[in-house]
Design a protein around this nucleic acid. Structure first.
Lengths: 137, 137
DNA sequence: TATTGTTATACTCTATAACTATA
DNA sequence: TATAGTTATAGAGTATAACAATA
């Protein structure tokens, strides 16, 4: 069976992303967090007071799709909101949220290590900048 | 706003994949084909007689999800099926399918060129093998 | 017994349009 | 007028379980 697509960077990019996503999804399962939930926790931790809209822009997620995401984190007691003005609010991690975010960072760190372990050592440093060039700006 | 995730290869992988997928989806729109439809055409063209199950394995798509995909390509007159035995059938491109597959390959080629153009020239050759290492075997 | 194609179904992710209240 | 949050909804993509027919 000839996989004539396997050598195309774009095709490999999609397959690699899918493989790594399912691995990370599994690794986050014990925390009962999706990847976007976990990413939100880390980003809120590093940007106390960030609004849902700003957070959505960072992660390339629509404003409307942030609503249930934030609600879930709030219901779980990981995030709290404080009004910034009459229409917007800033997010911050609760005490429990800080502790869960730390666990998320450990899991993500392990995940990155597993990922990089599959790349030839001499090419590891180039991977992140190359990928970043494909989506940033 | 600190995007503390942006330097993680795994995160960049996901963002890069999403960005490139949406670009390719748009490029294929004139043919009214999804990425998996287009990929199927190219793979069937290179593997005349391949079965839906085998094709699904190549693309990491479940057998059950291949059913509507193949049906669509057949309805559009791009692919025909011929019985191999009592329970399985091989796929081949129709005349029209060959012509559309050629257009798909042109679009994919342009897409790969656009993608690689964003990578520093000295790192281009390493990208495909590095990504392949993340999902193959 | 194992495999192929199939049906039905459910869940996640993503995208869009429209509404409200505030700036 | 523009923006933030919200609601509702629809479309893809993906995953699972079960079944019939055949190997």
């Amino acid at each position: 069976m000839k996989d004539v697509l396997a050598d195309l960077p774009g095709y490999s990019l999609r397959r690699a992303s899918a493989a790594m996503l399912s691995q990370l999804t599994e690794a986050l399962e014990p925390l009962r967090l999706r990847i976007t939930d976990a990413s939100s926790l880390v980003l809120i931790g590093a940007n106390t007071g960030i609004t849902p809209s700003e957070l959505g822009k960072l992660m390339a997620i629509q404003r409307s799709n942030m609503v249930p995401l934030i609600a879930k984190l709030e219901d779980r007691g990981l995030v709290s909101r404080e009004a910034l003005d009459g229409r917007s609010f800033g997010l911050r991690l609760t005490e429990n949220g800080v502790s869960v975010a730390a666990k998320v960072e450990d899991i993500m760190k392990s995940h990155e290590d597993r990922l990089l372990a599959r790349i030839p050592p001499e090419h590891r440093d180039q991977l992140a900048p190359a990928l970043k060039a494909l989506w940033e700006d």
